[in-house]
């Protein structure tokens, strides 16, 4: 997982070289032994700084966490966890994506820290973002030790909601009470207590959840791409996005029909995200 470490002098180290040269020249000029000693001490500190810069990036592991999806134009947060597996503290670490704004932090021995890297997401779609670079200038500022980690984030950027035609009314409102019993499945956290099969629990069958067949398609509203007023693709996707959010907020049953795919009606966060993902991966307008 860990890529090799790269070490290179920073631009500031040219000041170091100039200072060393000046100090050496003055010492040599006056035959000053203590001047030589101080010059070589500075050179020795620089050499040790190389070693310490390298060591700063050893014993570090980096794990990328799945990021939360965002709407286009928002700033995404790309989470990662950096862990110091060594037994010495790591100071002055910086992590950034590409040339983006770095996040600076330090790690105590054994400490692990979650870092959310900001990433501007201007365009909808599925983005694969390569792992960030981790670097440090510590302890001297003359050398930069850098390591690029492997792996990548997959970030969903949904189209931004856009103002437009009002939400089309559904044919009928979904009614939970009249849905048809479908079967049992094991309980998952978040299932409504009403759906739990209490009798089965009393019989010792464990926690089961009653599931119901989705209501007939006619009962939900289908947002159909073809029925939208003519407009650019991105604009139309923005309307759909707004409708989906509004329908979910209203607790309605909704589905989606796009030229590329169809999402059967449903509701709940997972369904909403499924619809939004469909919008995100919809191909753009062909030029």
């Amino acid at each position: 997982m860990n890529a090799p470490l790269r070490l290179r002098p920073t631009r500031r180290s040219s000041i170091l070289v100039a200072t060393l040269a000046l100090m050496w020249a003055v010492s040599a000029n006056y035959g000053n032994n203590l001047g030589f000693l101080l010059t070589y001490l500075l050179a020795g500190v620089a050499m040790m700084a190389v070693y310490h810069s390298r060591r700063q990036l050893c014993d570090l592991s980096c794990r990328l966490l799945p990021p939360e999806p965002v709407f286009a134009g928002e700033r995404a947060r790309l989470p990662l966890v950096v862990e110091n597996t060594g037994d010495s503290p790591k100071w002055g670490l910086a992590v950034a994506i590409g040339d983006g704004e770095p996040v600076r932090f330090s790690l105590a021995p054994g400490e692990s820290r979650r870092i959310d890297l900001p990433w501007p997401a201007p365009e909808r779609g599925v983005h694969r973002i390569g792992a960030p670079r981790l670097w440090t200038l510590f302890p001297s500022g003359w050398f930069r030790a850098e390591r690029a980690f492997e792996g990548a984030w997959t970030l969903w950027v949904y189209p931004a909601p856009a103002d437009g035609p009002p939400l089309p009314p559904g044919t009928t409102a979904a009614d939970d009470g009249e849905r048809e019993f479908d079967g049992f499945r094991t309980y998952r956290p978040g299932d409504a207590p009403r759906q739990i099969h209490w009798k089965g629990l009393a019989k010792g069958q464990g926690l089961l959840t009653k599931t119901f067949a989705p209501a007939a398609e006619a009962e939900g509203v289908i947002f159909d791409w073809r029925r939208l007023p003519p407009a650019p693709v991105e604009r139309r996707l923005g309307w759909l996005c707004r409708w989906l959010l509004a329908a979910e907020r209203a607790g309605r049953h909704y589905g989606l029909r796009l030229p590329t795919e169809v999402v059967a009606p449903g509701s709940g966060p997972a369904h909403l995200h499924a619809c939004l993902r469909a919008l995100a991966r919809m191909p753009g307008e062909r030029p």
Partner: peptide, 27 residues
Amino acid sequence: EAAVALGWRPLARTVAGLMAPALPLAV
């Protein structure tokens, strides 16, 4: 360079780590 306020003890340890081996090199 430490990016955080470094306490006296880690600061002293880091400086010693830089300078103590630098001295024989200098000699």
